[in-house]
């Protein structure tokens, strides 16, 4: 499939803010107008939803020059939101099926649309909707019991593994070069990183299986990189250091995943995702020390000792690389 999407390179982000704000106001008014007249008639919502999405795709496929992109965006962006909102309202009683449909429609719209910004938003939307499908399937979309359900935890685990797999696959950008998503690897990485970090919230802090899984992944990545750049005796020292570091993250899931993410992000020089995973890592390490069942004075000794170890590692790396 050709990538002939119009790239929104020349649209300044203040303009995008104005369009976003205006679009939300227009959508809210339209939904309110329809709701007043139609009330519980779900068929009307379905019809409006289909029409809005078809119109949005048609507008975003119009073969205009880049100068006319503002016009196309102004029309297609509110139409997409209207279409998806009416879709939700129509299918609120069958939420799981509705969310699956929304996911499929988002991907289809991405494939058919040609405006770069619209496609980015549709990709992000699809990646956010997927976890909600599982949440609604286990009847926890609007309840507070989500965090206590083992099914939710398993689903989140599976989604995180899948998303991190997609994230890692973007290293080989030539695989995607001739596909529709070739120009959207950064968007995919951002969406998968953000959703994975958000889903960490539903992984129990004592889920060592999760932590060990990602610690092993981090160790494998570290080994691949060490074999690529290090030879001789230093390679064995590198393996030992990597093993110690990765093993230490195996105690806590909220540390293990961010470390994997940080390694992958830096490998790809994706600094936005690096920031996301770094913040998640800082939160994870803070929660880890907070959850330790020991006196504050012992925690302070442990923190100072950990700090000293990392500073020693810093000096060791500086020494061997001179």
């Amino acid at each position: 499939m050709e990538n002939n999407s119009h790239k929104s390179k020349h649209l300044p982000w203040p303009l995008l803010i104005v369009m976003g704000l205006g679009g939300v106001i227009i959508v809210a008014l339209l939904v309110g107008m329809v709701a007043i007249n139609v009330r519980d008639n779900k068929i009307v919502y379905v019809v409006f939803s289909v029409i809005a999405i078809i119109l949005a795709i048609a507008v975003s496929r119009s073969d205009e020059s880049e100068d006319k992109e503002v016009k196309s965006l102004l029309a297609s962006y509110p139409l997409f939101i209207i279409g998806f909102t009416f879709g939700y309202i129509a299918g609120i009683d069958f939420l799981t099926q509705t969310l699956v449909l929304q996911f499929v429609v988002a991907l289809l719209s991405f494939a058919l649309s040609k405006i770069h910004l619209c496609r980015q938003m549709l990709l992000c939307y699809a990646s956010v909707v997927l976890p909600f499908i599982f949440f609604s399937y286990f009847d926890h979309l609007f309840s507070g019991r989500a965090m206590k359900d083992g099914n939710i935890e398993m689903s989140c685990f599976a989604i995180i593994v899948a998303y991190m797999g997609i994230f890692a696959a973007t290293i080989k950008d030539n695989w995607f070069a001739s596909t529709a998503i070739g120009d959207y690897l950064k968007t995919i990485r951002f969406a998968t990183a953000a959703v994975s970090v958000a889903l960490l919230w539903f992984i129990h802090r004592d889920n060592t299986a999760f932590a060990i899984f990602f610690a092993i992944i981090s160790f494998v990545i570290a080994c691949i990189l060490l074999r690529k750049y290090v030879t001789g005796k230093r390679l064995i020292e590198g393996y030992v250091l990597a093993l110690l570091c990765c093993a230490s993250t195996a105690a806590y899931p909220a540390m293990a995943l961010p470390i994997t993410g940080m390694l992958l992000s830096f490998w790809l020089l994706d600094y936005v995702c690096l920031v996301i995973f770094s913040v998640a890592f800082i939160c994870g390490i803070s929660f880890f020390y907070y959850d330790l069942q020991m006196l504050l004075i012992n925690k302070s000794y442990l923190l100072m000792a950990s700090g000293a170890l990392f500073l020693l590692a810093f000096y060791y790396i500086k020494r061997v690389t001179k």
Binding site: Y289, L296, I297, K299, S300, Y301, L302, L303, M304, A305, S306, G307, A308, L309, F310, L311, L312, A313, F314
Partner: peptide
């Protein structure tokens, strides 16, 4: 960063 951050946190907690 991690070493100095942990060390500083340890000193503050002490």
């Amino acid at each position: 960063t991690l070493g100095s951050g942990l060390m500083l946190a340890g000193i503050i907690f002490f």
